[in-house]
């Protein structure tokens, strides 16, 4: 590994992906369809805009076919100091995409001296998804949500994607993964513009609970093992993951509030 110095016409610029491509380090695409029962899938994630920014949450289950392959997978990650990315779809390429996305943002910031705009970050993720399209067609689909606090406009913003790299900015909430239909219905009914930092956690906890109630690939709260959803808030202060104990408390309160109707 020697120092990567380039002449001006060869220079890959501030893009880490460009650098990897130049060095021939991008992974090759699968030639044959991959059996979906053999690969691990991550399931339901949501993002909700609220008064101070945006919240992201994800359940903890990963499945391979009808088997549970992990009970404690994490699907919500910081992308940089003021944005986050949540993933659903095939876990391997999804985790790799998150790692590269985080690196891409940090690399740009270090080379250029200023971070990318929020739209620029969303576009970068879009480019990565488009590059993954051949793999997605062979069964290795990744569907992320990107959300962040836009320091230029002073609001939380969120983006939904599809496997072709389509990028769709949403107003109030976004969801992805097998339980997303159920989760987004709950968020749609519960969302208010004046939701505060606590209220929005309650909405996310309820959305993931109901998704797990209807979708076998989404994991519900697991008090027996102490496993609860991953929840993170992104505000003017930056990305902050909630303490597991805090999520456990909100979940227990919600489950208690359901009362006898669920017994």
């Amino acid at each position: 590994m020697t120092l990567p110095l380039y002449t001006p016409d060869e220079d890959p610029g501030p893009s880490f992906l460009g650098l990897l491509a130049k060095l021939g380090l991008r992974p090759s695409q699968p030639a044959e369809p991959v059996d979906s029962a053999l690969v691990t899938h991550g399931t339901t994630v949501v993002a909700i805009r609220y008064r101070d920014g945006v919240l992201m949450a994800g359940d903890r289950r990963a499945t391979s076919g009808s088997l549970i392959s992990s009970r404690s997978m994490e699907k919500v990650f910081p992308a940089d100091s003021h944005s986050g990315v949540a993933i659903s779809g095939v876990a391997g390429p999804a985790m790799e995409m998150v790692r590269l996305f985080q690196l891409q943002l940090e690399h740009y910031e270090k080379v250029e001296g200023v971070p990318l705009s929020l739209d620029g970050k969303a576009n970068q993720l879009s480019v990565m998804l488009r590059e993954n399209l051949p793999a997605a067609m062979q069964g290795l689909a990744v569907v992320p949500i990107f959300a962040g606090y836009d320091q230029r406009s002073g609001t939380g913003r969120l983006f939904q994607f599809d496997i072709t790299g389509g990028r769709y900015e949403e107003g109030d909430y976004a969801a992805a993964g097998s339980g997303s239909l159920h989760a987004s219905t709950v968020v749609k009914l519960r969302h208010r513009d004046d939701l505060d930092g606590d209220g929005v956690v309650d909405v996310a906890v309820e959305a993931l609970f109901q998704a797990a109630d209807e979708d076998s690939a989404t994991g519900g709260p697991d008090p027996l093992r102490g496993i609860y959803p991953v929840v993170a808030r992104i505000t003017a202060e930056g990305f902050e993951r909630l303490d597991e104990s805090e999520v456990a408390e909100r979940t227990d309160a919600f489950v208690t509030s359901l009362g006898d109707s669920y017994r």
Partner: peptide
């Protein structure tokens, strides 16, 4: 500055690999 950028590239590549 050219060497600084090469350093960032090298470090990010090594950390990624």
């Amino acid at each position: 500055d050219q060497l600084r950028i090469a350093g960032v590239r090298h470090a990010d590549l090594k950390g990624y690999s």
